[in-house]
Design a protein around this nucleic acid. Structure first.
Lengths: 329, 329
DNA sequence: TTGTAGGCGTTATCAT
DNA sequence: ATGATAACGCCTACAA
């Protein structure tokens, strides 16, 4: 049995306008009347219909969040950050998994638009031309997390600098042969930026960049495992490996451990991301910590600011990372 | 610039009904007319307003999913399962993190109801009286995942039997002193069911249940770590520990490793859940695999069946688990 | 095949 | 302080 505002009005013996007023307490209502209405609401178990409301007032108090894959280590935390502040401002979130598939991204974008979300948070490595066009012509505020693009609001960390820090740290520890397992080449963030930092740090220190010491990986455990095996196969093995993601780093550790190579004595390993498990594996993984929860929370905060016409200090927020030294280096 | 069905109608020189018809291709429209309409839609970049549509046809093609915490190991995969099949049936999902907080659960339930979701998927260890009351009086179909309650549709695995299997396996390996780190006592699933299996298997084999050998844990790494330390402190140490969750098991391994106790030679450890990292830690963790993705996918499938009035074979689906023997046992 | 009009459950303007 | 009423954008009898 579902009741609407009319039923409540009838039961309370008032007009629907008054009911609306007490529900939203938008305008003064005589206490006596309010009481009657409240009682009717209570008795009928009336719940206002948010859909009808949205249609009228033209906002839905919902936002969409597009992530590559919620079941991947990196994303649950940022989604949690988003959801927490969304909840604080009384927004709900539509979760969309894109698998980095451009078609799916567009498809989801369309539904989100049709469902009239108030805003969108987008995470993805690359923004296709098609998607960019949509972004441009639509009037829904969008904020990017973890990636950056043109004039769009975004929250990121400085991946290049972070990678430099790692390499410098390794250099300072006396390592001369530092290998790297990278992300995918065409991925601007994990693939390119992190490698760029590696290369630049090496050059800045006068160490020759050695193609042989770098293996292209993907994102997952297996490619780290394979990458490390490859690097450990060369006659002059690296004494340290910088790995572009924690999950790959754990794969790399595995490869080393299987060969009886001691970590960190014979081989230092540093990862990137500080996923939940990074501090729990044995030996615990040194890594770059990205404030994932904060990225989500701040991204959503930026979105609410846009939504509420508050002034933004800056459309681009760059969060600081931290190097977390544990046992693997 | 946002256009509505009226604008399209005007531009195409037809009535809004015809526009509606081609958008939903619900009824025959002369090809010529259709073309005109399509062109108008294209030119204006018209997108139907799903909110208005929902108001009229009384469904929203969205469902809500309540999980304790998306950033916890266990849930992202099941949410992914849910989302995949939701997407297949053209539903979107509202993600709600409850933190197992009963107030938050009710609060979210209220919004979901107000936002007129077509269905709800609920995950949580315990269903409070208040929540149960809401569940009962509302007419939104709800399916439970990972827990079971009264007459409600649910998808679960047999935690008691799984735990028995683990203990029997350990018994067969010759272990006499088998410890356990449990979940929280008042939690029916992780806490009670898994412990029950442990107790029953022991009794069935004529091994005395020994209070001293069990430590109450929580869900996280730390409580596993502490629990194991406690068990390893007693003079007659267990030679095997069954741990009620993988994350705690990894904590337990850590405790053992720190004391130089070899796994599995001196101490066998078996976890529960088969989280993503279980096979990646070193030594790789033996565990009970719950088909998390499937639980989500099937749960959502059940929901769609209810939503579309298809007949359910059974309101209660119990999925089979699998024992995954790896290196820690 | 196409158009007219009423209604979905609200909010908000304008009277009263 | 309260009530009548016109939107909001769409779907769908019913009529033409």
């Amino acid at each position: 049995m579902k009741f609407n505002i009319k039923d409540v009005a009838k039961k309370a013996g008032v007009s629907i306008s008054t009911v609306s007023r007490v529900v939203n307490n938008s305008k003064a209502v005589r206490p006596k009347t309010e009481e009657k209405v409240l009682k009717a609401i209570e008795e009928l178990g009336y719940k206002p219909n948010a859909i009808a409301r949205s249609l009228k007032i033209k906002n839905t108090k919902t936002i969409g969040i597009m992530v590559p894959d919620i079941s991947n280590q990196f994303f649950p935390e940022v989604v949690r950050g988003v959801e927490d502040v969304a909840n604080m401002y009384e927004y709900n979130i539509f979760l969309c998994n894109t698998d980095l598939d451009q078609e799916k991204e567009i498809q989801y974008f369309d539904v989100l638009e049709e469902k009239q979300v108030d805003g969108i948070i987008f995470m993805g490595n690359i923004i296709s031309e098609e998607l960019e066009k949509r972004f441009k012509i639509c009037d829904i505020p969008i904020v990017l997390i973890g990636a950056d693009y043109g004039e769009m609001p975004s929250v990121t960390t400085d991946n290049v600098q972070a990678s430099k820090d790692v390499v410098n740290y390794l250099l300072n520890k006396g390592h001369k042969r530092i290998g790297m397992i990278t992300g995918k080449e065409k991925d601007p963030v994990v693939g390119q930026a992190r490698k760029q930092g590696y290369v630049e740090a090496l050059e800045a220190s006068g160490v020759d960049y050695n193609e042989e010491l770098v293996a292209e990986g993907g994102y997952r455990f297996k490619s780290g495992y394979e990458g490390a095996k490859k690097l450990l196969d060369i006659k002059e093995k690296p004494t340290a490996i910088f790995v572009a993601s924690d999950e790959m780093a754990i794969g790399a550790m595995r490869a080393a451990l299987e060969r009886g190579i001691a970590i960190p004595e014979e081989l230092a390993i540093v990862g990137f991301d500080n996923i939940h498990m990074a501090g729990k594996v044995y030996p615990a993984l040194s890594t770059i910590g990205q404030p994932m929860y904060e990225m989500g929370a701040i991204g959503m905060r930026v979105l609410t600011k846009i939504l509420h016409d508050e002034t933004l200090d800056s459309k681009k927020v760059v969060l600081s990372y931290s190097f977390i030294e544990r046992e693997s280096s």
